[in-house]
Design a protein around this nucleic acid. Structure first.
Lengths: 226, 226
DNA sequence: CCAAAAGTGTTAGTGATACACCCATGT
DNA sequence: ACATGGGTGTATCACTAACACTTTTGG
């Protein structure tokens, strides 16, 4: 080859979590130009000897201390002028972390990183607002077609925990009876036999996901007609 | 900046069409190493001054003479060893063209390009088999959630034409009455008032898509529960 | 009048929605 | 005994699926 153009390739990760019944995204305050002092999605450049997924996992670990988590690739952003420093294309990823593990973040030496409500997003560097909006709409789709919420919950959880997760992400109220019927029909969770007692009321049964890894919900979803 | 790694970025396009009731993909026979003589998806490297979409459109036009067509970005492929020449990431796109326009292809000076049935795909260069499989499954999803079939049909078409398109892509037989009921309910097409007479039988009404551009089918699709 | 594709309705079953009360516990 | 959240069933409605005959034309 020889005259093949070379371009810098970055990954940007939209990390979601739920804190206080609010959907939050991890944002980093930039210390350097361009967009110094502005919030941005965590991310960084892809090294020559690592895949896109590896790069995203490495950056996520560097920023949050969280490792081994599921990352979903979303989109490649390639506008010529999206980075004022020069030609940079960015591949975006989505990740979800359990809000318990998030405490690891504050013990890390990551610079000014913060969990920001998706409903109070400040002006972001680069095209990161677009990237984030895309990730959010992808998240809302994913929770309806995969078991991805397992990433947001502790291993054992109650049906109320699960319903709240859906409600927070979809930003709606759901009917308790219908939600339970539907979730049971999807056959993605199983009773543990244990209960969780918490507060002055009847204890709740706890559940675990049958698949402990990300998996599409087998064809309960629209197949078109026959 | 300075020590930011630079990577070659390519686009690869899976172009579908229907010929003789068979779903075909455009493949190019490679004239150069690596994988010389082997079939591959059309594509090429992204220039510094063009977006990913522009690059895909340019490559598509160079290979097929077809321009102004809808291209959908699918995925970024970034394995370290996917190209033996060095580090290359590739962003894949999908395109559909009307089989009438395909004739433009053979009049072009494109080198050995061929429409190959998706059921008879030979060994492909690079990771193009994976890229193609991904595109095919995306296509099957897209025709159920968008009006993308408008790219495959002439402007005016009959319901039988439309049904055959779905059948060929989904590789199933569909019930005529149920298909028509469903399509009407989706409200994506409109009668032209004209008819198409062809052969010794009753003439068929013709239809056009209400949106003449790619559009998602407004929320007839699963919204999850309330 | 025959061949060929176009066009059309009904029924049964399945899944979605709306909705209200009793249960088990701690204090 | 009361406050709190956990847990459950039914009736209606909308959509999906299965299925066969009549219509219009050219030859």
């Amino acid at each position: 080859m020889g005259e093949i153009p070379k371009i810098s390739v970055a990954v940007d990760i939209t990390v979601f979590t739920i804190i206080n019944n609010d959907l939050k995204v991890l944002l980093i305050r930039r210390k350097n130009e361009p967009f110094r002092g502005m919030y941005a999605l965590p991310g960084g450049f892809v090294e020559l000897n690592e895949s896109l997924e590896k790069a995203a996992a490495r950056e996520l670990e560097e920023e949050t201390n969280v490792r081994g988590i599921f990352l979903k690739q979303l989109h490649a952003w390639g506008d010529v002028k999206r980075d004022p420093r020069g030609r940079v294309i960015s591949v975006s990823f989505m990740a979800l972390i359990d809000s318990d593990k998030f405490k690891l973040l504050s013990t890390s030496d990551a610079e000014a990183a913060a969990w920001i409500s998706v409903y109070e997003i400040p002006k972001l560097a680069f095209d990161h607002k677009t990237v984030l909006d895309d990730a959010l709409s992808e998240l809302r789709y994913e929770i309806q077609t995969t078991n991805i919420t397992l990433q947001l919950l502790p291993k054992e959880f109650t049906l109320t925990d699960l319903q709240r997760t859906y409600e927070v992400i979809l930003d709606t109220k759901l009917d308790k009876r219908n939600f339970r019927k539907r979730i049971k029909a999807l056959e993605i969770i199983r009773e543990t036999g244990k209960e969780k007692m918490e507060g002055a009321h009847r204890p709740a049964k706890t559940y675990i996901f049958k698949d402990q890894k990300y998996a599409p919900i087998r064809e309960k979803m629209h197949v078109f007609l026959k």
